[in-house]
Simulated assay, not measured.
Amino acid sequence: MSPLRWDVLVAGLVLALPVLALGLRGDFTADEVTARLPWCLLAGWGAVALLRFAATPPRTPPVHRGAAVPSPADADPTP
């Protein structure tokens, strides 16, 4: 999964909002903000990957609809 998908970028932006707000407020310097922004993108990528993994239905094996060959255990033994 590419880290530049639109859903990853949106999640990274949402996670970066508090960092940007703290930078605007003056609690973080510009260097601290720029050092933390890639981590927000990485966290967004991880969150989207986890949600995609959880939302994907499990794979089921294909059903073979050919002629069924009876096994010896299925046959009724005659005494």
Rank of each mutant, 00 (worst) to 15 (best):
E32A: 12
L41A: 13
V10Q: 07
F53D: 07
V10D: 08
A43L: 03
L9M: 12
C40D: 14
S2E: 05
G66M: 04
P38Q: 05
F28H: 13
L37I: 15
T29C: 02
A75G: 11
F28R: 10
R65Q: 01
L20C: 12
W39P: 02
G66F: 04
P72H: 10
R25W: 10
P79Q: 02
R36P: 01
R36A: 15
G26Y: 06
E32R: 08
F28P: 04
R59D: 06
L13V: 14
G66T: 05
A67E: 15
L24V: 13
E32G: 08
L9W: 06
W39C: 08
A67L: 15
D7F: 01
A16G: 04
G44D: 02
D74S: 15
A11W: 00
D74E: 15
V14D: 02
C40G: 12
A49V: 04
L37K: 01
P72Y: 07
T56I: 06
G26Q: 10
A73V: 12
L42A: 13
V33A: 06
L4K: 03
A73R: 12
S71Y: 07
A67R: 15
D7N: 12
G66P: 03
F53Q: 09
L50I: 01
W39S: 15
R25K: 07
L17D: 06
D7T: 14
H64M: 07
A49C: 05
A43D: 03
D27I: 05
R5Y: 01
A47S: 13
T60V: 08
R52C: 10
P77G: 10
R52S: 13
P57S: 09
R5K: 08
R25V: 06
C40E: 14
T56Q: 09
W45D: 01
L17G: 09
T78S: 06
M1K: 04
L17K: 04
D76H: 08
P77V: 14
R59W: 13
A73E: 14
V14G: 03
F53C: 02
A43R: 00
A67S: 13
L24I: 07
D31Q: 09
A75R: 15
W45N: 00
D7W: 03
P79T: 04
G44Y: 00
A47N: 05
S2F: 02
L15R: 04
R65M: 05
A49H: 05
G66A: 04
W39A: 15
V69A: 13
A73F: 09
P18M: 00
A16H: 00
A21P: 07
A30M: 14
S2Y: 00
F53W: 14
P61M: 08
G46N: 05
G44H: 00
W45P: 00
L13Y: 10
A16F: 00
D31T: 11
L37E: 04
A54G: 09
M1Q: 09
A47E: 11
L17P: 02
